[in-house]
Each structure stands twice: as structure tokens, then as C-alpha cells.
Design a protein around this nucleic acid. Structure first.
Lengths: 150, 150
DNA sequence: AATGCAATCGAGAACGGTTTGCAACTGGCG
DNA sequence: CGCCAGTTGCAAACCGTTCTCGATTGCATT
């Protein structure tokens, strides 16, 4: 009861995801289940090391190599997204939200998500003008907090 | 006469840049002059290795370490810009043009430059709405050529 | 032109994030 | 409940980039 309070909200979703993965031929090992749980609970953008740290709290046998290997598998299956921000190790998030770009706070390294259908539209238009079609894109704003009026 | 035809067009610009650099306290070594020449002649977006290869044709003593060191210096002085595209070594270009973003051809790895004041404006607006000011940004469109009508 | 010295150099070792080779282990179908 | 391809931990390899160190050199100053 006490132990289960931690991930009550996500447990249903994770199990459904697990089912879907098994269907796709991905074997459900202890280590992968641990990582899936950690990813499900994360509301930030952790890097591989941090995910390893968190996963080990769930299952101490999880190695860093397996974290990387599993992240690659999950990325291929469209479960997670990988972001390589400027001069920093890759950071990961679950790919449940449709699509968004990122503001990176240069001071705190926090990541804020945003969407702009208008920018999206302009991107496609620009690509088409040059004879291209957009396969994927990357839009990152490296920012500093504006001084707040007191 | 024959030997000099290669960089007739750029030689004036390079010398002016050299003068400006000396003024800023950057020592003009043989190796740096070679790299500056190579950068001035390049109209693509070479990586450090390629720049090293080209610089060695001008001055065989240029080492890869010096290429990296000099690129960092030139970046600090605002002479070159560094771009870290997805899953590839950093690529460099002279920072003479004002500002632009990039289309990357996924098949040929060619880089096409474009500008969009409108996207620029939207970026600032979005950042401000979130309480941020944009320090720098990164917009890359990973694209494939559209089939050309025959 | 010769001197002095901090800036710069080449070579190769080190670095940090990520991937891989290998022998042991295990999920899940039959 | 046994099989075996898929998965694991560990350590070594990888790869782009940076650093260390002793030797060299640009250039300001005589």
C-alpha cells in the first residue's frame, strides 16, 4: 500500500505500454520494466546517467549500457524522444505528447516545452520553396529569464 | 602568377581580417594564416577533420589540435560559427553573413542556408510569453528533396 | 638586427559520452 | 519445464574533442 503510492497514477499506462511492446517483439526484462517505470514517472528531461541512477533505485542490477541500449530500442519504437542540446549529453522524454520544441534556460538548464503551429507552417513553406520536404526538425531557444518587475 | 590565381578573390579580405585579429591580440602564426585562407575559400560547411586536410595542403605542419584550438579562438572573436548538427561532428563556416538557419539534406548531407525574419519574430514572442529572452537559437530542418516534375 | 618571453605549436595522452564484444543469463513460446 | 534467441553486466573500444608538455616562434622592445 505504502510502496505502491509512488506510481499509482502511471501504473496503468506503463502496463498498457508493456503489452504493446511485447506485441512488437520486445522482451520485457526486469531492467526494461524498471526503466519504463522511471520514464513514466519523469516529468523533466533526464540524461542517460540520471535515468540510470533512478532505474537503479527500482532495480539495482540495471547497468548504464542497458539504459543506453533500451533507450535506443524505445526510441526506435517511438516510445521516447532523444534531444541533443548544445554541448550537453543527450536528454530523454516519453513521446506521449504530440510534438513540441524547447526553450533551454541557460542558467538552470531547465527545459520548457512550447508549440507554435505558425512556425511549423513557415518551416514547411520554406523547405518547399527550396525544393525539400521536412522529415524532422529541431528548434531550440537558448534563453535567460527576463527580470521580473517587483 | 599561376600559384596565386587560386585565392586572388579572397586575398584582400583575408589580409584585412588578419589585421583585425592582430589588433585583438591574436598572434598570426603560419598555421593560423593557413586556416584562415582555407576558411575564406570554403563555400561549404566543413568539419574539423576536413579543415585540417585542406589546411595541410597550404602548410603541412598544421596539426589537428591546432585546427581545433584556432577554431575556438576564431569562434570567440566572432570570425567563424560552429554548428553541431544531429549525430555528426561539428561543422564550421565564416561568420560574414548576418544570420541564417539551415536545411540539412539527409541524403547528401549538404547544407542550405535560409533566413526567416518572421520565424525570428515568433521565437522572440514565444520566449517573452514564457518570461525569457532569447540569447541564441538553433533551427534546423532535416529534409529530403521533393520529386521534381519532369 | 638581436633579445626576451608569453603565446602558440605538434604529438600523443586523456577525456566524456556512447557503443560494442563476449560469456553468462533469462523471458516466453512450445 | 526445456529450449534458445534475445538480453544482460562488465570492460574495452570508440570517436570527436580537449589537454599536457616540452619545444618553437611571433612580435614588442631595445
Amino acid at each position: 500500500m505504502v510502496a505502491r503510492m509512488t506510481y499509482d497514477d502511471d501504473s496503468g499506462r506503463v502496463t498498457a505500454m508493456e503489452e504493446a511492446l511485447r506485441q512488437e517483439g520486445v522482451r520485457l526484462t526486469r531492467q526494461r520494466i524498471a526503466l519504463l517505470q522511471v520514464l513514466g514517472e519523469a516529468d523533466d528531461h533526464p540524461d542517460a546517467n540520471e535515468l540510470h541512477r533512478r532505474a537503479q533505485e527500482v532495480d539495482a542490477t540495471v547497468s548504464l549500457a542497458t539504459v543506453y541500449r533500451t533507450l535506443t530500442v524505445l526510441e526506435d519504437k517511438g516510445i521516447v524522444q532523444r534531444h541533443a542540446f548544445e554541448g550537453a549529453p543527450a536528454r530523454f522524454e516519453t513521446a506521449d505528447a504530440p510534438h513540441h520544441d524547447h526553450i533551454i534556460d541557460l542558467d538552470t538548464h531547465a527545459v520548457i516545452e512550447f508549440t507554435s503551429p505558425e512556425i511549423e507552417r513557415l518551416q514547411k513553406e520554406i523547405a518547399r520553396k527550396h525544393g525539400f520536404e521536412v522529415v524532422s526538425h529541431r528548434l531550440e531557444l537558448y534563453c535567460r529569464r527576463l527580470p521580473t518587475k517587483s
